[in-house]
Design a protein around this nucleic acid. Structure first.
Lengths: 218, 218, 218, 218
DNA sequence: AATGAATGAGTTTTCATTCAT
DNA sequence: GATGAATGAAAACTCATTCAT
């Protein structure tokens, strides 16, 4: 009992610390970028010593992986919640795009941190993280491909290369925040709606707007 | 005469060195990424001393900017050649997408280096390079927007937010090489053709394939 | 309690290190001069790593300023102790000259280090440290001028430009150790006594040695 | 004949270059100090290549020695001209002090350069240049000591340690330009006159101003 | 006579990490 | 659990000097 309590207590403290470091690291990555985001800079923002980071994370790599996986998991959870709530493939696609952009919009610092890590970190054998992106490991990518596949099977979507369209959609979503000028004229939600319209025209069987019911091109 | 010869000779040598360093730097960025791409690593690949890099480039920043601008300029030249050769907006759009992906495909190391720089380098006041991406400075982006605009004015394209569609297209193009699995199943040219089809459906007035002549949705 | 103890302990260790580095730096400056006094050379003499110096001092500049200020403060304290103990202006002047030279004599390495720094270091805008020498900031200089002023007001000293005489005295004191041949034939104390005699003749109202009581030239 | 002409020509050019480099080096030392006065900086100011400096001077040390000796020789020539023109020891002493300060005043950059070198350069066995200052090698110092000696032998000056007084005078002269505040309130000539008065009181047999003819204290 | 090209040695500084306390 | 102290490795950069031309 006592032992278990103590253990729980320790785990609780450790967890709180990890979370604190996590947030400080995200802020750091957002503010000064991956290259200059040293443990010292992160520790300064967390108002702790650098040694404490080393205590809670095996490595700098370990910390970065933790951030990466946590942010990815949060994003995935959020997006899947919305796609699961939708019924038709079309509705799911819309939900996917909108939810994805909304999440990015409401968690900008985390998203920037994610990008910094993905485009900077490399495995010990120098494979860039962005090349690790694949269906097996990334549930978001899998969900998107599932939606497209399903839509084709249900006759909602025309035939196309699922991999290509999925890639195009991911690229279109991710490109939004890269263009600061765009973000000024059009907010994330409006951008999402435009994208939805764009890709519905591209994938729906009949492109004549909302009344699409005949499937001659499917 | 003699002086001019000497000068030319010197300029030639200097240029050759800069090119040599340029290629070594691209290889380095491609192989081990921006973070670990120290002058020492670049010098090792160029089989020269680090001091010689400092001799030909004021700064590491200077070298990186040189690479960035050179690769961008080459890409731009190549793509514009193809878009200029096309007549209709639709043909220009196709040329843009295909040429862009072809260039990436045939200069993969340079493209990877470009990405490494864009997503890692920051201005002295910590603004990431990828946020400097805008119409005024990037002729490729401008060309794409011009094509879309023109297409709308000519009645070839339906009405849509030019900025959004341009962003989506850029994102879709750039995402290709990020997904190594994709690159295995489908090569760059095939990917380009699929994208062309995708975006033509999305932007052409009548989406019923090639016979589009009535403009009821324009 | 425990916390306070720990803090004190840390402060003690840190202080000891700073002192150790301080002495190693003085030895280095004395032995090989400012130009060659790299952090590596200082670290070697302190038998620590160069990084440890950077850990305890923000900068090389920071370290040099610390040495400068410490040695100046020590010198000032020592000299003022002696001048304060004296009553008449004449006695104070004598105390000033003798104490100054004695301190130099017993702290030769520190004094040499001081000279190395003053004549080599420059502010970020390239103003040499030796040009920063002024009454407001240098309490020793101020004390000397006060003594001279006071002597004039009390009628002990004749009228002369205080600034000029103060400068002459400082120059005469500082020049001693510059001349190694002199140091062989005459020690610091004897030099001091000669200087006292010299400047007393120069500033006392009546120059006929010790019996000066008439003040016809004051 | 022809050979000699060619030789002369070469010598002439070489001499002109050395002079050009000499002046550029003085400017550099004055502006940015010994530590930062690299060959590159000097070459930049002379608008030549660094290699050319290495061509005309064996070493950086060689260049610095050249500057040192040239400036010293010029100063010596100027001062000796004035002391030689004077008759009495007293007049010679006055000439010495005034000429010395005047020369410094009219060649401030050269004088600053001199100071930079003397207080920074070291022999290969790390002996600072300022410790090489001695009677045998420095004709100015010798002249000053000769004046004082002669004055004592002639009965103009009282008995004192020639070495000490010479050192004091040199120190007082050299200290002038170290104090920038002083230079603002009182110019070099005025300072010189004050010094003359000061040291005449100190060394003349009878200190009662100008009517000194009785030698009871000699 | 003069220079651009090139380098090895050495500079300060920052970094991730370890360890005793 | 937490920290200050400490370090070796590596970073970018500068320098005086040499050499072919």
């Amino acid at each position: 009992m006592h032992d278990t309590e103590t253990q729980n207590n320790h785990a609780f403290i450790a967890n709180a610390r990890r979370t604190q470091i996590f947030h400080a690291a995200i802020r750091t990555l957002d503010e000064i970028g991956y290259v200059r985001a040293s443990l010292a800079q992160i520790a300064k923002r967390a108002q702790i010593s650098t040694a404490l980071i080393s205590y809670h994370f095996k490595d700098k790599e370990d910390l970065m992986n933790y951030i990466l996986m946590t942010v990815l998991a949060n994003t995935t959870t959020f997006v899947l919640q919305h796609t699961n709530a939708a019924q038709s493939a079309r509705a799911k696609l819309q939900a996917y795009i909108v939810a994805h952009l909304m999440y990015q919009d409401t968690h900008q610092d985390a998203y920037h941190a994610l990008v910094e890590i993905i485009f900077n970190a490399r495995t010990p054998d120098d494979v860039p993280y962005y090349k690790l992106n694949n269906e097996e490991d990334d549930p978001l990518r899998r969900e998107l491909q599932d939606i497209l596949h399903h839509g084709q099977q249900q006759g909602e979507f025309r035939l196309f290369s699922v991999a290509v369209v999925a890639t195009a959609i991911q690229g279109a979503i991710g490109e939004y925040w890269v263009n600061p000028h765009l973000a000024i004229t059009i907010n994330a939600v409006a951008y999402a709606e435009e994208l939805v319209h764009l890709f519905e025209r591209a994938v729906l069987c009949d492109a004549h707007g909302d009344q699409a019911d005949t499937q001659m091109d499917c």
